[in-house]
Design a protein around this nucleic acid. Sequence first.
DNA 1: CTAAGGTATAGAGTGAACTCGAAGGTCAAG
DNA 2: CTTGACCTTCGAGTTCACTCTATACCTTAG
Lengths: 124, 124
Amino acid sequence: MKISELEQRTGVSRHTLRYYEKQGLLLEVSRRGNNYRDYPEQAVKRVNMVRQLKDLGFSLREIFDVLDALRKDTMDCAQGAVLMAQKRAVVDAKIAELEALRVLLTEEQQQLERSAKEQDLQHQ
Amino acid sequence: MKISELEQRTGVSRHTLRYYEKQGLLLEVSRRGNNYRDYPEQAVKRVNMVRQLKDLGFSLREIFDVLDALRKDTMDCAQGAVLMAQKRAVVDAKIAELEALRVLLTEEQQQLERSAKEQDLQHQ
DNA sequence: CTAAGGTATAGAGTGAACTCGAAGGTCAAG
DNA sequence: CTTGACCTTCGAGTTCACTCTATACCTTAG
């Protein structure tokens, strides 16, 4: 697949895709005779995973570490598992934090809605 | 409270505190006769909330919008409630995304652990 | 009174993650 | 064989969120 197709299928710009490749986040990129990049089908998933991790607050460097561990699974399984567990712990912590914030926002929201109703009553 | 105390109690540097103030994230800052900033007790909570939201992926601009809505609660309650609901929706989505990722990471981790054991057996 | 250390402002510098544009090679249609 | 839509690299520019520096004023202990 050419870069434009990957761009279209992931929503990530060609500039950013080349940037990710430079940062070591996209390794399975071959070249055609004309020097055009040729991505395997798998690249779509890979890019999506990078995006997902990024949206969750991981830096590109951290994402690189995760992918690196996954790639080296034949060499370094135990270590990879530890890294994965660490990342999962971070994810768990974030979930807990978000849930706490959710409660907080819900309370704020309810209070605002109550105030809105009171105002409404006064207007009538 | 002076800036150094707020710095110590929040773990946020004085530089960053002044920066947040400039960005409109810290409004209840009065001045002493000597022009030193004087923060109310409440500022600790405010700073912590800013940090929490930031860690969850909100930009300072988005955080400003949330705080702005909360501050204007006497004027614009209904709109504030809507904004809060929107933010909560974002939080909910993030939680869902994280939970999906958690499953994915758990699977990867288990697979790596299994591979590690197999390697171990071969070594014995 | 002095020295150390806290505070002020303004503005420059940093690093991450893009984002864009120029200059040029490739390719398929007409 | 040209036109237009691709693709390449390289390097400059941008935005965000700090982070630091310079210069100068304020405060407190000795």
